[in-house]
Each structure stands twice: as C-alpha cells, then as structure tokens.
C-alpha cells in the first residue's frame, strides 16, 4: 500500500507555477529520491506535503487519510516528519534538548523521551556534542541534528531535504549508512538530494522534477538513462551529443 500519495498537486505563487499537477506514490518501507535541477520545485513540494504551504489544487493522502491543507503540526503528529534544507537548529537550546523536543511527540513521559533522544543522538553520531548549544555546531553537525530531531519524533515517513548537501564525501558515506539503517528499522523515506552518487544506490524509486513538472518516475538505474532527465540536467545540446555517442557506440 502506498504510504504517501500525491494526486495532481499544484502549487502557484502568483503567476509562477512551482508544482504543476505532480502525482506519484511512496510505497511503505521504500526510499524514494526526489531530484531535479535547482528551482525545479522540490522543496516547494516538500512544503506542500508537510503543510507549510497549502496546495493550490490537488490531493495529498498519507496513510490512507487526506492530509491536504492540514497544518504542519497536525501532519507531523500523523507521522510525516521533515527536515529543512536550510538548517533550523533551535539555537539557544542544547543539541540534546533539540532532539528531545522531537522525542516528546511520541514519548509522553520524561524517561522514554530521554532514552529515545539519546538513541537518536547516538545513531546520528552527535553524542560528543549533546551538551553544546545547537547554534554552535558546524554545518555537518547541524545537518545531522536535523535528522536526529526528525527521527526522534518517531516518523512513519521521514522527509529529508538535502541532508547531504555541502558534506565531504566521508560525511556523505556516514549519512548514507545512517539512512540504510533507518530503512532496515522500517522507516519509509523521501529524500530530496543533489548528491547523485549518494541517492542513486539507495533509492528504490526516483522521481524527477523539472520546472515544476514531473518528467520521470522510475527505478534509479533506468532514470540515469532517461533522455528527458539527461536533457533537464545537462541541457539539450549536451544530451544530443550524448545520444549520438551512445548510438555510435551501439552501432
């Protein structure tokens, strides 16, 4: 069963159409990658799903229920939790307390919440920093904090918005490992990512957006050979040259 289902979701800012009738599904237990060039409308779509924006038209259902137009906290309570591309640490709170705020969503007493927070902090390798103020973390730490905090909220669907952007390749590897561990624990994930070598090997399905339109939705190995995707990413001229190269090699 699809955990998340988007049906013709459209988002407009004035005359600008940021998402144009986007439909796709996220199956329970899978990892779905959402890619596309800058300005394709990936974060806007995330904002629509998480309730930060109210879609202009279309329907979003999560876990069998319509969540279109619900507020962000209502959607988070239903189990769809997101991270922010531009990191938003609760600056004057410690790293531990940041994660604790997430943990309190599902754990109502202190003991279980503290344990849950400690567990997520360990998983995201933030233990050495847990008593530091979140505002003082380096960027890689803040990205991991975004993840730990969302994770602590015990989501069914975890929406990661470019958690790997700006990380070194070692840090990317560590992040990928964490994501795979989360998948094993049964969390469904939707990941917006620019770092292709990170997302391609782990995604079960990749959705490609370009100028607000969905141009492809397929398994990653087929996406990398999709002409429309290559054109969107590399431009028409380059894609033409590549096609010629490929046909030359084939024939």
């Amino acid at each position: 069963m699809a955990l998340l289902e988007l049906n013709e979701v459209t988002m407009k800012f004035g005359e600008l159409v940021a998402n144009d009738r986007v439909s796709f599904t996220v199956e329970a237990g899978s990892i779905v990658g959402l890619i596309g060039p800058n300005g394709a409308g990936k974060t806007t779509l995330f904002n629509c799903i998480s309730g930060l924006y109210k879609p202009f038209s279309g329907r979003i259902s999560f876990d069998g229920k319509d969540i279109t137009g619900l507020t962000p906290y209502q959607i988070a309570r239903k189990g769809a939790v997101r991270t922010f591309q531009v990191v938003r640490p609760l600056k004057e709170m410690t790293v531990f307390d940041n994660v604790l705020v997430g943990a309190f969503l599902k754990c109502h007493d202190n003991k279980t919440a503290f344990e849950k927070a400690a567990e997520c902090i360990r998983l995201c390798e933030l233990t050495p920093f847990q008593d530091k103020l979140a505002g003082g973390l380096p960027i890689a730490g803040k990205k991991r904090l975004e993840m730990a905090r969302a994770l602590a909220a015990g989501p069914k669907l975890l929406m990661l918005d470019e958690v790997m952007a700006g990380l070194t390749s070692t840090e990317v590897k560590a992040a990928v490992e964490v994501i795979l561990r989360l998948k094993d624990s049964g969390i469904t994930m939707m990941i917006v990512e620019h770092v292709m070598e990170a997302i391609m090997p782990i995604a079960d399905k990749v959705v490609v957006l370009d100028s607000g339109l969905k141009i492809a939705e397929d398994a990653p190995e087929r996406i990398v050979n999709d002409d429309k995707v290559i054109e969107a990413y590399l431009g028409a001229k380059y894609s033409q040259r590549m096609k010629e190269q490929r046909s030359g090699a084939g024939g």
Partner: peptide, 23 residues
C-alpha cells in the same frame, strides 16, 4: 523539566521548526 517547558523553548527558538515536530 517537562515536555511543556521544552515545547515553550522550542516555540521561542523557532516556531516553524517546532511545528514541524508536531508542536
């Protein structure tokens, strides 16, 4: 020392972030 206290601080530090965590 309790949930509500942490929620208050979270709202102070970032209302949108807090809401994204179900507050």
């Amino acid at each position: 020392g309790h949930r509500f206290g942490y929620y208050m601080k979270a709202v102070r530090e970032g209302q949108e972030t807090a809401e994204s965590l179900g507050v």
